[in-house]
Simulated scan of single mutants.
Amino acid sequence: MIETSVTNEATVTATVTATEVLLPGKVDPSGLRLVQRELSAPAAGQALVRVESTAVSFAESAMRRGRYFGQPAFPFVPGYDLVGVVEAVGPGVDRALLGRRVAALTKTGGWSSAVVLTAADLVEVPDGIGADEAETLIVNGLTAYQMLHRSAKVQAGQTVLVTGAAGGVGSVLVQLARDTGARVIGTAHPRHHEALRALGVEPVDYRDPDLAARVRELAPDGVDAVFDHLGGASVTLSYRLLNRTGTLVSYSIAAALDDTKPVILDFLPLLAKLAFWNYLPTGRHASFYDIWAGSGKPDSAKRQAFRARMRTDLAQVFALLRDGRLTAKIAARFPLAEVAEAMELAESSGRTTVGKIILVP
């Protein structure tokens, strides 16, 4: 329930009761709980956003296992990103935001019917783009765009390998790479191969014991870039598939999702391996992509630069969507109250869907 009153200064919230999904600890999806919480009115520099669309990502699957590096202590509300409409603003915030559809990268807190956020972190969604479409491209679109253009700097005519090409990030990444003019090889379950071919991707079965040989058949001299979400043994294989000047971008450790040791013990060997490869005089380059890198402290110069970069890149992604050069891949849509079912689908080994799983408050 949201009730507001208007003054000459700003819109002040009288009563805001939000429905949220609470992650109480390391639980199965069925252990997620719906709760209600009264929100404070937006303070100076803040805005109240009525959430229209949020989603399930790999991050939430890792967080419920306590496997996401830097996650908050339990209990907390998950939700890495969201799209919604600005219902109220605090002092110092441009009232032109009122009624506007906005996107936000939150890391946590998005699984709610309403949120209070720093207004400077909001990115306006262009007219003509729906909430669910925009939602598929916030964390996934930013990750894919920045890895492709800022990390690997892929050019037309190059060949890239995308692991998990049918996933949330992968399905966006292959489209962006093809739009750039690159040739794309993608690993995925055979059930997704037809859909990937329709996107112009050359699919390879990720379960093939001779995966490296299959990729080398397609790219005998190696590939110009690999985008690896698995970590572990996969990242070593990915590095070996590069050509003489290729770039490896690692961006997750999905293969270690069910490990029981502290997550830092999975990250440190990966980071050490990437650093060692960069030390070698091979001409190749390896890096780990972190969407929050360089975000800095609140209101710092680094945070302002981070916001500007995010706004610029997300605007590019939204423009590609608006122009029909990028398609929002929505795998399924669930009410927020059915978040357990949504997570079970996202984590199912037999999942037959491609793209992002949307939650609608």
Rank of each mutant, 00 (worst) to 15 (best):
E3H: 07
N8V: 04
A10C: 12
V12W: 12
T15G: 14
L23D: 02
V35N: 14
P42V: 05
A43V: 14
Q46K: 04
V49R: 09
F58H: 12
S61H: 04
A62C: 10
M63H: 05
R65A: 06
Q71G: 01
G84I: 08
V85S: 12
E87H: 04
V89W: 00
P91H: 02
R95H: 10
R100G: 00
A104G: 04
G110V: 06
W111T: 01
W111F: 04
V115R: 02
T118W: 08
D121A: 13
L122R: 06
D127S: 09
I129T: 05
I138F: 02
I138Q: 00
I138P: 07
V139M: 12
G141H: 01
L148R: 00
A152L: 07
K153W: 08
A156T: 13
G157A: 04
Q158T: 10
T159P: 01
V160N: 11
L161M: 14
A165I: 00
S171M: 03
S171G: 01
T187K: 03
H189P: 04
R191Y: 15
E194F: 10
A198S: 11
G200C: 00
G200P: 01
D205E: 11
D205H: 05
Y206Q: 03
Y206H: 14
R207S: 08
D210L: 11
P220N: 01
D221M: 05
V223C: 01
D224H: 12
V226P: 00
L230N: 10
G231H: 10
G232T: 14
A233N: 13
V235E: 05
L242W: 07
L248I: 12
A255D: 11
L265P: 08
D266E: 15
L268Q: 14
L268M: 15
P269I: 02
P269E: 06
L271F: 11
A272M: 09
K273G: 14
N278A: 04
G283R: 00
A286H: 03
F288H: 02
D299R: 09
A305I: 08
R309C: 12
A315V: 05
F318T: 03
A319P: 08
L321A: 13
L326D: 02
K329W: 10
I330N: 11
R333E: 06
L336E: 09
A340M: 05
M343T: 06
E344R: 13
L345S: 06
R351L: 09
T352I: 14
